[in-house]
Design a protein around this nucleic acid. Structure first.
Length: 168
DNA sequence: GCCAACGTTGGC
DNA sequence: GCCAACGTTGGC
C-alpha cells in the first residue's frame, strides 16, 4: 500500500448530496464543491491527494454517521460555484483570477455493509480522538487516523446490533 | 425548533 | 488588535 495514503472524513447533508447521489453520478464521480471554511479549504487545497480514502459522513439528518467510502479522483482545483451569483455558495470576494475556494473530485467506492452511526462512534473508546466526536466541531473536511479508519471498517462489518445474536 | 459552539464581520 | 454582534453548523 502507498505509504503516503491518507484518510479523510467528508461531511454532507444527505438531503442535498447523499452517497447515493454520488453513486448515481456519471462515472460515480462528482466535484466536492461549496466548501466555505478556511481550515477545510486548506486541507482540500494542500493535503487531500489523489487516491486518498474518504469516509462519507451524513450530517444534519435523523441518523448521522459514516455510510460509505469514496476516493479522491482529482486533486484541488478552483471551485467555480464561488463566482456563480446563482449558487448558494456564491462568494463575490473570490475572483476567477485569484480563487479563494477549491474543490476536489471524489469517486464512489462502496457503501459500508452497515453504517457506523455517530452514537456508535461516540460509544467506541478507540474512536474517542475522532474530530466528529468533539461537540461543536463544524469542520466538514477532517483528517482520519489510519487506526480509526480500521476501527470504523471493523464496526461496519460487525455492527453492534449483531453482537450476541445467533449466527445464521 | 432549540441551542451550543464556533467562525466571520465590522466598529472602534 | 479587541470584541460584540451576527451567521452557520449540526446534534438533539
Amino acid at each position: 500500500m502507498d505509504q503516503s495514503m491518507a484518510y479523510w472524513l467528508f461531511k454532507s447533508e444527505p438531503q442535498l448530496f447523499s452517497i447515493d447521489h454520488l453513486a448515481a453520478s456519471p462515472q460515480a464521480t462528482a466535484a466536492w464543491d461549496g466548501v466555505r471554511n478556511y481550515q477545510a479549504r486548506n486541507s482540500l487545497r494542500d493535503e487531500v491527494k489523489k487516491g486518498d480514502i474518504i469516509l462519507f459522513y451524513h450530517s444534519s439528518c435523523p441518523n448521522p454517521g459514516i455510510v460509505g467510502l469514496a476516493e479522491v479522483a482529482r486533486e484541488a482545483y478552483p471551485d467555480p460555484s464561488a463566482w456563480d451569483p446563482g449558487s448558494p455558495a456564491y462568494d463575490p470576494k473570490s475572483l476567477p483570477q485569484k480563487p479563494t475556494w477549491y474543490m476536489v473530485d471524489v469517486r464512489y467506492l462502496k457503501h459500508l455493509p452497515s453504517m457506523v452511526s455517530l452514537s456508535q462512534i461516540k460509544d467506541c473508546p478507540q474512536l474517542s480522538g475522532m474530530g466528529v466526536t468533539r461537540k461543536g466541531n463544524r469542520l466538514s473536511i477532517q483528517p482520519v487516523e489510519p487506526s480509526h479508519y480500521e476501527q470504523i471498517l471493523q464496526m461496519a462489518a460487525a455492527p453492534l446490533e449483531s453482537i450476541g445474536q445467533p449466527a445464521r
